[in-house]
């Protein structure tokens, strides 16, 4: 592979200050050898056209800022390798959320759903002087749940969330809900289940599993949702 290569992009552009409507921009950029990831390429593009707007921060897949739709699939730009990517690289904002500008979306609805599941530990016993004990096995139950980075790749790839973003909690929020249901230190199990007992909030998940397919952290919201449904059934009988 030569040290420099030119990559072609098709990028969704929209600046409400000057554009009547969004359009797809064809643009190409010469990459340096050190430009390994899509985020590197976008930063290189931005050096050429400083009006290109996207969120980014940690550039190592842990802050969740640079989620976008890449060649039709949601993902993080900083974890997407430029080596095997198909050209032209088509970049669009995450689907289903209002676009503010270019690939920057309004995430209010996404966070509203996250907040709706009361994403914090509830334990009303007086706080002990030292840590609450938890066995390694009980702690293991939280693996695959607590690592979520709230990038919204999952919820914005979910048809049920597209249809009912105000009523269906969505995979990210439900993964967080199960993270607290699965925590042996949490005491709000029945309130948490009550909060999800509704035709939409939980049960709009039809196990399409787009969320699992796109999660950049390799998490499995569908499985967590299944476990919440199990808990619902078990408490009903």
């Amino acid at each position: 592979m030569s040290s420099k290569r030119t990559v072609n992009f098709k990028i969704y552009r929209y600046d409400p200050d000057k554009d009547d409507k969004p359009y797809m921009q064809d643009i190409s950029v010469e990459l340096e050898e050190s430009d390994k990831k899509l985020l590197d390429a976008l930063v290189r593009l931005k050096a050429k056209d400083d009006s290109l707007s996207f969120r980014r921060s940690c550039r190592e897949g842990v802050c969740g800022s640079d989620a976008m739709n890449i060649n039709g699939k949601n993902g993080l730009a900083c974890l997407t390798s430029m080596d095997e990517i198909a050209q032209p690289v088509t970049i669009r904002p995450l689907p289903g959320l209002p676009v503010i500008r270019d690939v920057i979306v309004d995430m209010t609805q996404f966070f509203k759903q996250y907040h709706s599941i009361k994403p914090y530990l509830v334990n009303n016993d007086p706080a002990p002087e030292r840590e609450r004990l938890q066995s390694p096995e009980d702690r293991e139950e939280l693996n695959g749940l607590y690592e979520c980075i709230l990038c919204a790749c999952c919820s914005t790839s979910c048809p049920s969330f597209w249809w009912n973003p105000d009523k269906f909690v969505g995979p990210a929020g439900l993964l967080a809900a199960y993270r607290f249901l699965a925590d042996t230190r949490d005491q709000a199990t029945s309130e948490r289940l009550d909060n999800l007992e509704d035709p939409y909030r939980l049960f709009r998940c039809h196990s399409i599993m787009n969320c699992v397919d796109v999660c950049p952290k390799g998490l499995n919201p569908t499985k967590a949702i299944g476990k919440i449904k199990d808990m619902m059934v078990r408490r009903a009988v």
Binding site: Y120, L121, N123, A127, E129, R130, E131, R132, L133, Q134, S135, P136, D138, R139, L142, Y146, F180, D183, R185, D186
Partner: peptide, 19 residues
């Protein structure tokens, strides 16, 4: 650190359940 544990931080555990 103990406060954080009480807030719900998922620390890894020793065999006897401590941080």
């Amino acid at each position: 650190v103990v406060e954080l544990e009480h807030y719900g931080m998922p620390f890894d555990r020793t065999d006897n359940g401590k941080i």
